[in-house]
Nucleic acid binder design. Structure first.
Lengths: 339, 339
DNA sequence: TTGTATGCGTTATCAG
DNA sequence: CTGATAACGCATACAA
């Protein structure tokens, strides 16, 4: 039988309330009492039963972060969450959510309705899912959104600056002399897709280059999407001299497709991505990309949620963290016509 | 105010016990009663308070999987765990554990001592950590080990067949004509390191090749380890014609080092890895590797733990799942001397 | 087949 | 500064 608060109280010859005070570092306890209780705790190897605490306090001390797909970006996010997770008094539940699967929906409903979690963090595209929104609304648990599709002043959110990042990257390509740049678009229900495309346009406009719809290919934020789109792009009349992947994984797909077709990267075709996932620097010659501040996003999302749970106020402004250009070996001077 | 079991009982005009029976699908309830209760539940939007249930049942309905590092292999494991996680009635807590950090130790102690988890899964090298072992022993919670350092008949464990996989891979290299094969060793406290080295030796012995300690380099299961070791290997008098990375990440490090030194892979030097992580097939020309059955391992570890929690018996034999050779583009015929 | 009463281990109120 | 006692919401002997 494991020791309870009553056992401690008995051994220390005090009331359970006093023990409770010591456990929770409450004031109004003499030093004498405190040590007496502490000795009893040590002697009995007592640890509070968290379920009882949760019941009486009406909270679970659990947070949940909702993920849809499982790519490198998500893994990076998970790693950071795990890393900073034990800084908080909450356990962090990482949960995948697939709207198409009934089991997945039931799991999430249970999680929220049975009050197993105190707060929720969504990642794209979970913030656009109706069930998620409905459950959060009904249960009134605090929500923090990461890169939401449509940021609302009513919901705290945090995102990287995708538009500015794509703008910088496109400028980089233009400076290298590229005039035919293919852009691999991401999924429609991600705001990042739109923002990155917008940044791409910003740079083209600034350089007074024409926006050629033919060079904007439908893709996905994964290897297969980039692979397929790159093959299509290179099969046109006037193939691009550079390919801007919607994210790193799509860029890797593009690189693979190019190598398979016999093009050398970056000598013949430059490729760049977006996100700066872990392996971007580990794959020769290194992927030129935009560093997406996933670490800071994870960190701040978590601390915002915890602050919200403490009842702290927030300023109703979306936090946007700057992105940063990372130039590696996959981009180079464009081949000049006739060269 | 959210509805409780009492509210349901009042609305349905029955006792709370009857409601309880309906919730938990217990027998001895007439169909009439059951529908009446169900109607009340629906009407009130009632969901049981999990904390109360946990308190009275003395269990948390939470499992924990303990991870040390955060590489691609771990990410693959996490992804699989998340994928199959909602098949069970347990929430799955993914927790990193760094023995050197006090906060990390406290987190784990709390998790176990406060009975926040019902069962634990360890991954290397957490199974060798004293605190982990001690906490598990004291609390008597069920434990399942993944690829433990020293499998014990008292603790259920599951692993991939590293020795056989390394044996097959080495044979593959030998068949390609390689006679000077460098092997990048993994960390000492992983059994996988030893097993893979043993399989390497098995194949050398079978081919009656000498075991050259110079060709067995200390490395780590990560990019930097492989990178550094490969640079050292290629700087010797008689550089190897093939490099067998201890795992895929080390192999990627080796490939990067080789490219940086001007060697082409696989034309001049063959490289292979172990694990078959996600990006192994996505990096041109594809990494030849051994497929480590991480999906099956995660799946079975979880189901074993749940079975244990149900009080089911197990046969006290370590489960070893075969590995499988995956030949891609990073290995090729050895360059013959004088060629 | 259904209901009553008790306890799980904590926190919190309020009186001493 | 300290302590008795009442919740918290559910499950479960045991009784009807």
């Amino acid at each position: 039988m494991t020791a309870t608060i009553k056992d401690v109280a008995r051994v220390a010859q005090v009331s359970i309330k006093t023990v409770s005070r010591v456990i929770n570092n409450e004031p109004h306890v003499t030093e004498d009492m405190r040590t007496r209780v502490q000795d009893a705790i040590d002697q009995l190897g007592y640890a509070p039963n968290i379920s009882a605490r949760r019941l009486v306090q009406q909270r679970s001390y659990m947070l949940c972060i909702l993920l849809h797909t499982s790519g490198f970006y998500q893994s990076a996010l998970i790693n950071k969450v795990l890393e900073v997770g034990y800084e908080y008094d909450y356990d962090i539940l990482i949960q995948t959510y697939f709207p198409s699967q009934t089991r997945s929906k039931n799991k999430l409903s249970g999680l929220i309705n049975e009050r197993r979690i105190d707060g929720l963090i969504t990642t794209p595209p979970c913030d656009t899912d109706e069930l998620v929104l409905e459950l959060v609304k009904k249960s009134r648990i605090p929500l923090v959104q990461i890169s939401p599709y449509s940021p609302s002043p009513e919901v705290p959110s945090i995102a990287g600056d995708d538009r500015q990042g794509a703008f910088q990257m496109t400028n980089h390509l233009i400076e290298l002399g590229h005039r035919a740049i293919a852009f691999l678009k991401g999924p429609r229900n991600h705001r990042t897709s739109q923002e990155r495309l917008a940044g791409f346009h910003d740079a083209l406009n600034l350089a007074q280059m024409v926006i050629d719809p033919q060079l904007e290919l439908d893709s996905e934020f994964n290897f297969e999407g980039g692979y397929t789109a790159a093959k299509i792009a290179m099969s046109t009349q006037k193939p691009p001299t550079a390919i801007f992947g919607g994210n790193d994984e799509a860029a890797f797909g593009a690189i693979y497709a190019l190598q398979e077709m016999g093009y050398s990267v970056p000598q013949q075709v430059s490729v760049c991505g977006f996100d700066d996932v872990l392996n971007s620097k580990n794959v020769w010659p290194g992927l030129t990309t935009v560093h997406h501040p996933v670490d800071e996003i994870a960190d701040r999302a978590l601390s915002m949620l915890v602050a919200l749970l403490k009842g702290e106020a927030w300023d109703h402004e979306e936090k946007v963290i700057p992105s940063r250009l990372v130039i590696r070996g996959s981009t180079a001077q464009a081949i000049q016509p006739g060269q």
